[in-house]
Nucleic acid binder design. Structure first.
Length: 294
DNA sequence: ATCCTATCCTGTAGGC
DNA sequence: TGCCTACAGGATAGGA
């Protein structure tokens, strides 16, 4: 479940550790990932030098000389590992092994094989289907309340699902979508099109804050994610609701609730998030009893 | 157009 | 203890 902060952490470390190195050889496992790794990859990479490591949303763009980019997505369990020259390591599920001329190694490991390795001419990146579909990256273009509200206009999607829709805003996944909504005090079941301008301002502000804090903490380690050196991220300690079902809300003590939206778990505090502007309040006609209860 | 569902995959947690 | 099932979810194709 690497989301934007985890991918950004990997990007920074790769940029520091392998930029400027020249590829001597590449070996593939033969297993397919989300799509097959191009069989031509070893031949096309040999002799090229890594010039830059960039990121768009959850995609890593490893830029090589002579107009070629490795487009990589970590999926659920993908990992890039950097091996120092001479370092020996036995690991299962390694699908690509890059060896540089100085002896440094760069491996792509992916247990669940939802990841992606694709070669794209750098000049064509904007036209690649995976990238062309993406909405704005919230680090490159920090979201504003007005901007999000415009994108959500008329949408009946639950706001939690909306935040995870990479075509609307690209980079949030299941963990940070739940965190953002708790911090903004919004019920995840609300229709995205029904949020007030002030509520969108809160969402935008919390997206900016959560991403900045999570990047500073080198991401959240949940099960398999590690940095390229194998260290866990620190942001997991800061999570307020994710994977905390039945534990007390840090703000009010109410047990955190887990629901399922779009086949995914959502965690939220029924007291801090919802309250008066909760979803479908007016479903049943008000009786005197319910009116009194308010 | 918009939204929803099933699918890919494997390690792990929980039940019995 | 060991077997079995359910669950975790990012992206996407296809259906309603």
């Amino acid at each position: 479940m690497p989301e934007l902060p985890e991918v950004e952490t990997v990007r920074r470390m790769l940029d520091e550790s392998v930029r400027g190195l020249t590829i001597r050889s590449v070996a593939l496992s033969g297993h397919r990932l989300r799509e097959p790794i191009p069989a031509t990859l070893p031949r096309r990479l040999r002799g090229r030098t890594i010039e830059r490591v960039e990121r768009t949303a959850k995609y890593l763009l490893i830029g090589l000389d002579r107009d070629l980019t490795i487009l990589s997505h970590l999926g659920m369990s993908g990992r890039w590992l950097v091996l120092s020259p001479g370092q020996r390591l036995t690991l299962p599920h390694v699908h690509a092994r890059i060896r540089f001329t100085d002896g440094t190694g760069l491996w792509f490991q992916d247990v669940r094989r939802f990841g992606l390795l694709r070669l794209v001419p750098t000049a064509d990146l904007g036209r690649d289907p995976a990238l062309a579909r993406l909405g704005p990256d919230p680090v490159a273009e920090p979201p504003t309340g007005a901007g999000l509200r415009a994108v959500a206009r008329g949408s009946r999607m639950a706001v939690k699902t909306f935040l995870m829709d990479q075509r609307r805003i690209a980079g949030l996944g299941n963990i940070y979508a739940s965190e953002v909504l708790h911090r903004a005090g919004l019920d995840p079941r609300r229709h995205a099109g029904g949020l007030a301008p002030g509520e969108w301002e809160a969402v935008a502000a919390e997206i900016r804050a959560v991403l900045a804090e999570a990047i500073a903490g080198m991401g959240t380690t949940f099960s398999t994610y590690r940095t390229v050196w194998g260290e866990p991220g620190r942001y997991g300690e800061s999570l307020r609701v994710y994977d905390r079902a039945n534990e007390p809300c840090h703000r009010c003590g109410t047990p955190i609730r887990r629901i399922v939206q779009g086949q995914r778990s959502t965690f939220y505090c029924p007291s801090c998030q919802g309250g008066r502007s909760g979803p479908r309040r007016a479903r049943a006609p008000r009786t005197p009893a319910t009116r009194r209860a308010r």
